[in-house]
Each structure stands twice: as structure tokens, then as C-alpha cells.
């Protein structure tokens, strides 16, 4: 594999400097996308800037502010954390679905987001659980909602020299649970043809007071679907409300047909997965209270 320069700066400032100025440098987190793309000749950066020596990108803190997950923390570290899995079972499962055990040793939620595949598994789950992206750049720090980070297949909102430092998941309100489901043509180790992330909040009488529904692999980016959430809010997640939420997801989808599935099939399945993920999130709340 041809590469002129590798560096592993220990600070954000040095990494930003290395990445700025249109020099053809690419950031490296787990490399499970970037190195494959380089080997296949799809990308040929002049300089690979390894971000894993920067403490903020490898830090994981869980406190009253929720989870702050360094953008390069490997999936295996997240899925092995019982507190994270209990608080965000949907996000944890979604991240754990990426690739093999070996890929889990390297892949990261931040990398999954920055690779900007429309089918990225962790992204709908991140959006559903109100994920926020912490970005550092030459102009200072800023935050972007997870649903606004990706701008199209393979593209995102990071400007020149900017780095995705961490993802923040706010602590869920009481009686809140999330769930993620995906459809793949195989039983494992495949790319989603549809993904659905749902977060549900119930009041003490079992009425849904808040909801977030995000869908993946059915549009150029993962989408937050407020219309689907609106169909759930105020309901007890009865069959009619679930049906309406699924229909809203179908209406929001603009999928393509490819070797994994047709557009028609994806539009149909996205409704099914939204219904089922909402039902799973619902049962997670009722079973734990």
C-alpha cells in the first residue's frame, strides 16, 4: 500500500495542523474503512494522521452528563461496558453489529459516523438517542446534532482541519429505552439494507411522552423522522400508532435499488423495523419498571 507519510500526533492541535490546508491528509481512527479504501485504490491520501494517541479521542466517561465517547474508542470497549449497554441497549447493539470480532477491536462510533455510509449501523441509533458531536477545529470547538453531521454518502460537515473529537449521549429521561434493528440479506457480517433506531419515553401511566425515530440505508444519509415520532407521542404504542409510525418512515425514505435490495423492498421493510424497534424499546421500559 502506497503512502508517503504516517504521523500519530499526541495533541489535537498538532493533528488539526496536520489535517488542515488541503494537503491530502486523512485522519485514521480504527482504519477498518480507510485502510480498506486505500488498499482498494479508492483513496490515496498523501498523509495518514493517526488520531489514537490523542487522549480525548480515546476517552470514555459516563457521569451525570451522560456518555462522552471519544471518537476513536473501539466498539469492543463500548460493548464490554455493562453500564453503557444497560443505559443505551440500542446504541450498544448497533455499534456491536459492525463487522466481525476483529473489526470490533478497531472500529469506532466516530469512524462509523465520519465514513458517512448511508448504511452505517451505529448512526440511526446515535441519532435516536439524541447524540451530539463534539468537533474541534482551528476556529475553536462546536457541537453538531448527530442527525446533521452527515451531508451525503461519504460526506460530512467537518471543515478544513476540523476533527470529530467525541460523541455525547445525554442521560436518558426516566422510563426511556432505545432499540436498533437492521435487515441484512445474510445472518451476520453484512451491510444493512434497512436500519431503524428508536428511543421511547413513557410516563407512569404508560403513555409515550417523547420519541425519536431514525432510519438508515434508505436515503443518502441516516434520517431523523419527526413524523414517525409524532405518531408515537401521546399513544400507548398500540398497533395503530406503530402502524402510523411505520408509514411515516416509509414516506420519509428515498432508497435506491442495489444488489442487496430493491427500493420497493426497503420502503416496505423500514416500516416493519420501525414498528418492531419501537415495540422492543417499549418492552425494555415496561420490563425494567
Amino acid at each position: 500500500m502506497s503512502l508517503a507519510q504516517y504521523s500519530s500526533p499526541p495533541t489535537l492541535a498538532e493533528a488539526m495542523q496536520a489535517l488542515a490546508g488541503g494537503t491530502g491528509a486523512r485522519p485514521l481512527a480504527g482504519g477498518t474503512d480507510l485502510l480498506v479504501q486505500m488498499k482498494l485504490g479508492l483513496r490515496s491520501p498523501a498523509h495518514v494522521v493517526d488520531l489514537k494517541r490523542i487522549p480525548d479521542l480515546m476517552a470514555l466517561t459516563l457521569d451525570d452528563n451522560g456518555l462522552r465517547l471519544g471518537a476513536a474508542v473501539p466498539g469492543a470497549v463500548v460493548t464490554a461496558n455493562a453500564d453503557i449497554a444497560r443505559t443505551w441497549p440500542g446504541f450498544t447493539e448497533a455499534l456491536g453489529l459492525i463487522g466481525s470480532s476483529q473489526v470490533q477491536g478497531r472500529c469506532s462510533a466516530g469512524g462509523n459516523l465520519c465514513n458517512a455510509s448511508p448504511a452505517a449501523d451505529s448512526v440511526p441509533a446515535l441519532i435516536a438517542s439524541r447524540g451530539v458531536c463534539h468537533i474541534a477545529g482551528p476556529g475553536g470547538e462546536r457541537t453538531v446534532a448527530a442527525e446533521d453531521f452527515t451531508t451525503g454518502p461519504g460526506t460530512h460537515c467537518l471543515g478544513d482541519g476540523e476533527i470529530l473529537v467525541a460523541l455525547q449521549l445525554p442521560l436518558p429521561a426516566p422510563r426511556t429505552a432505545d432499540a436498533y434493528l437492521r435487515m441484512i440479506p445474510r445472518t451476520e457480517m453484512d451491510i444493512a439494507i434497512v436500519g431503524a433506531g428508536v428511543s421511547i419515553t413513557l410516563d407512569e401511566s404508560g403513555v409515550c411522552t417523547d420519541a425519536r425515530v431514525a432510519i438508515g440505508a434508505v436515503a443518502p444519509t441516516a434520517l431523523l423522522v419527526p413524523e414517525a415520532a409524532a405518531a408515537l407521542i401521546g399513544s400507548t404504542l398500540d398497533a395503530d400508532s406503530l402502524q402510523a409510525a411505520g408509514a411515516a418512515a416509509t414516506a420519509a425514505a428515498s432508497p435506491i435499488s442495489d444488489k442487496r435490495g430493491t427500493a420497493e423492498y426497503r420502503r416496505k421493510v423500514v416500516a416493519v423495523l420501525v414498528r418492531r424497534a419501537a415495540a422492543i424499546a417499549h418492552s425494555r421500559i415496561t420490563e425494567s419498571t
Binding site: L28, V36, Q102
Partner: peptide, 16 residues
């Protein structure tokens, strides 16, 4: 294993 994590060594730069 790289620092105890199971990885594919074909997707790790040697310099890492």
C-alpha cells in the same frame, strides 16, 4: 492481539 484487542493485522499500519 494489539494491546489485548483482537484485530486483523492486515488493517493495522505497522507504525501503529
Amino acid at each position: 492481539l494489539l494491546d489485548g484487542a483482537l484485530v486483523c493485522s492486515c488493517l493495522v499500519l505497522a507504525a501503529e
